[in-house]
Nucleic acid binder design. Structure first.
Length: 202
DNA sequence: TAAACGATCTGCT
DNA sequence: GCAGATCGTTTAT
C-alpha cells in the first residue's frame, strides 16, 4: 500500500457486499484515489447511481453476462469500466458475485493531483475536470485496461473513508441519461456540492 | 458485415 | 441550452 495523501481507512469487501442502493448512498463523501505517475489523483465522491441486478432493465447486466460486462458479475469491490460514446465510465461492483450489480460513480470534487487532471483533460477550469462520469475517468486516467481491477486490494487504486471528515447530506433523485426504469430514485448526490453533474437531476 | 444504439461531452449560440 | 460528434458492443440480416 502506498502512502496516502491523508489519514484514511480503505473500504473493505464487506462494505460493497450490501444492497446496491445502500452502497451508492454511503459512497457519497468517500475518497476515490488512483496512484498514477508517482502521485495520488482523486477526490471526494459527490454523485453516484445504483444499477441493480439483472432484473433492472437500465443495468448493463439486464441481458445477462457477456464478455464486455463480465466485471459486473465478479466479486464485490471489483472495478467495472465500460466504454460508451467513445469514452469511459467507472463502477464499483456490489453485492454477491454473480448478481450483476454495481454503483456508477458520476462525479467527484477534485482534491488531489489537480494539476495532473488538468493536463489529462486539457482544461484548467476545475468544473471541467470531474463533473461527469467520463470526465472523471479521463482525469483519473482510468480506461478499459483498468477493468476488473480490485478496489479492495489494489495498492494503487481504491475508495477510502476519512474518519475525521464531517458527514455530508445525501439526496436521492432519478437516474440520468437512461431510457428504461427512469422513475426509480437511484441517483445519490451531495446537494451542498458544486461538483455534481446536474444539481437536482431531471 | 451492416446497422443501430447508448449510464456522454463539447463547442457554439 | 442544444445539436452534433464519436466508436465499441450488440443485434439483425
Amino acid at each position: 500500500m502506498r502512502q496516502l495523501p491523508f489519514k484514511a481507512e480503505r473500504l473493505t469487501a464487506s462494505f460493497y457486499d450490501r444492497s446496491t442502493a445502500t452502497v451508492a448512498g454511503e459512497l457519497i463523501g468517500k475518497a476515490l484515489l488512483h496512484h498514477v505517475d508517482g502521485c495520488w489523483v482523486g477526490g471526494w465522491i459527490v454523485e453516484t447511481e445504483a444499477y441493480l441486478d439483472t432484473r433492472d432493465p437500465a443495468s448493463h447486466s439486464a441481458r445477462g453476462q457477456t464478455p464486455s460486462n463480465a466485471a459486473m458479475f465478479a466479486a464485490p469491490g471489483t472495478l467495472y469500466v465500460y466504454p460508451i460514446h467513445a469514452k469511459h465510465c467507472l463502477n464499483a461492483v456490489t453485492e454477491k458475485a454473480g448478481r450483476g450489480a454495481a454503483v456508477l460513480i458520476r462525479a467527484i470534487e477534485p482534491v488531489w493531483g489537480i494539476d495532473f487532471m488538468q493536463l489529462e483533460r486539457g482544461y484548467s477550469d476545475l468544473r471541467r475536470l470531474t463533473r461527469g462520469p467520463a470526465m472523471l475517468c479521463q482525469s483519473l486516467k482510468i480506461d478499459r485496461e483498468d477493468d476488473k481491477r480490485c478496489l479492495v486490494t489494489d495498492p494503487s487504486l481504491g475508495i477510502f473513508a476519512d474518519p475525521n471528515s464531517d458527514p455530508r447530506r445525501v439526496l436521492s433523485t432519478k437516474r440520468i441519461g437512461i431510457s428504461k426504469a427512469v422513475h426509480r430514485n437511484l441517483r445519490f448526490i451531495d446537494p451542498d456540492s458544486t461538483s455534481t453533474s446536474r444539481p437536482l437531476g431531471r
